[in-house]
Structures are given as structure tokens and as C-alpha cells.
């Protein structure tokens, strides 16, 4: 039974850059063990929100607590219990996979590093890559190595930024299945951004839709599709992105 405690609490969050507003009045909570999708078109405010959660950006207004702690004042404590993976980050290409994982295991203070790395490489089926140079990996292999890195510290919170971007449908499906398995086994709290609606429908228990810096809809993928009278989540996405929907008050 998953304990229903809030892992992330965001209240009236706003971020302005010079004359533009990236996000405004964003509030949500994410409970332990939830798999939550953060969706929106380009420029909707997803990246800004994730970057605030990671402590890379300070907000202009509002409150953020992760595990009840501040991501800035108690940065090290928060990040020790969190991890992150993105299709857009890499590791030094001229290090072997095992060396890169070893470095991150040390940075996260993992005990029994060898056993943990071995366990994760076996879980993701990439033991044969351990001596390969990281720069020589395919996209699918890179994604799995990045996910290994993201689980090294047994995080309680995992932030995933488009992990299946640039993967072929077969590898993307394998990655989704692995993520489902890992999340279930470890009762992980996951915040997931993706432009792939198949990912979101398969993985996310709840979705937060951002549009022009505000959360304009939230619910399970099925609820959103039904409430907006669309046929799929992809159509919901397009309707919101093109300002074609007027959301009922309960959805706002």
C-alpha cells in the first residue's frame, strides 16, 4: 500500500524572464508513487517547471517544496533523493559506460557501487555495453544507460524529460515497459514530460496540461479525453495547443 504523502508541493508558482511570462499561478501536488505527465506544446512552461523543480531556476513568485524541503536552500538533501534523465543530456563520450556509471555512483554516494551498477545494467539488459565507449552508443542504448544512471541512488523522485525522444517504436516500447516495471516495483514518484501521447497514455496515472504558462487541465488521460469530447489524448493536446477548447470550470 503506497503511503499518500505529498512528494512535490507547488503553490502559485510564477516565473518571469525580462518582459515575458514563462509560467504563472501554477499549483499542483504530486503524491508518493504517482506517475504524473507534464504536457504542453513548445513554450507552454514544462521545461521551466521542471528546471524549477531541479533547482536550476529560481521562481519569481510562489512556493515549491520537495519532500517538504526547499530545492534551493536544501538543494543537496533534495537532490540526493531525486534523479533526472533526459534525451537531451549525455555523458562524456570518451569514457566507458561502466566508468561513467561509476562516477555518478560516487557522486550520489552509492554504497556497494559495483553491485548496484551490475543490478541496474542487468535490469535494463545492457551488461554487454559496460566496456563500450559512451560516445559509440546508439540512441536506444544511450537512453537505457541514462536510465541506469537515473536509478543509481534508488531515487524516491524521478524527473524524466522526453526519455523516449528519438527512439524507434520498438525500443520506445521496451523503455516504456521497463519504466512501468521499475515504477511499480519501487513505488517511485515520476514526473514525465513527453510529446509522445502513447507514452503518456500508457504510463501516466495523471496528466497536468500546461498552456501559455498555466495549468489549464488535469486528470487521468481517459478523463481528459472524455471531458473534452475528443477521441484521443493526441487530439486533446492539439485542441489545447490551438486554443480550440474552453474547459469546464472543474477542469481548470
Amino acid at each position: 500500500m503506497v503511503e499518500l504523502v505529498d512528494i512535490i508541493e507547488v503553490e502559485n508558482l510564477a516565473k518571469r524572464f525580462d518582459n515575458s511570462v514563462a509560467i504563472q499561478d501554477v499549483s499542483f501536488t504530486i503524491k508518493k508513487g504517482e506517475f504524473v505527465g507534464l504536457l504542453g506544446s513548445n513554450g507552454a512552461g514544462k521545461s521551466t517547471t521542471i528546471q524549477i523543480l531541479l533547482g536550476l531556476i529560481t521562481p519569481s513568485a510562489g512556493k515549491v517544496r520537495i519532500f517538504g524541503l526547499s530545492p534551493w536552500k536544501e538543494r543537496v538533501q533534495v537532490l540526493a533523493r531525486t534523479n533526472f534523465s533526459s534525451a537531451y543530456v549525455a555523458m562524456p563520450p570518451n569514457l566507458k559506460v561502466i566508468e561513467n556509471l561509476e562516477v555518478f555512483a560516487r557522486l550520489y554516494g552509492v554504497r556497494d557501487r559495483k553491485a548496484k551498477i551490475q543490478e541496474l545494467m542487468s535490469l535494463f539488459g545492457i551488461e554487454q555495453l559496460s566496456q563500450k565507449m559512451t560516445g559509440a552508443l546508439s540512441s536506444g542504448e544511450s537512453t537505457r544507460v541514462n536510465l541506469c544512471k537515473a536509478l543509481l541512488n534508488d531515487p524516491e523522485l524521478l524527473l524524466l524529460d522526453e526519455p523516449t525522444a528519438s527512439l524507434d517504436p520498438d525500443i520506445a516500447d521496451k523503455v516504456r515497459n521497463l519504466l512501468k516495471q521499475v515504477q511499480k516495483e519501487r513505488a517511485l514518484t515520476v514526473v514525465y514530460t513527453s510529446h509522445n501521447m502513447i507514452d503518456v497514455e500508457e504510463l501516466c496515472q495523471r496528466v497536468l496540461f500546461l498552456h501559455q504558462g498555466r495549468i489549464i487541465a488535469q486528470g487521468t488521460p481517459a478523463e481528459l479525453v472524455a471531458n473534452l469530447g475528443e477521441e484521443s489524448l493526441e487530439e486533446v493536446f492539439i485542441s489545447i495547443a490551438r486554443d480550440r477548447v474552453r474547459l469546464p470550470h472543474s477542469q481548470q
Binding site: L54, L56, Q77, L79, N83, F84, V89, A90, F104, L107
Partner: peptide, 9 residues
């Protein structure tokens, strides 16, 4: 690689 370093503890 800097992002992975900056979001580690």
C-alpha cells in the same frame, strides 16, 4: 554532461 552534474547532490 553539465546538467547531470548540476542536478546531482
Amino acid at each position: 554532461n553539465l546538467l547531470s552534474i548540476f542536478v546531482s547532490p
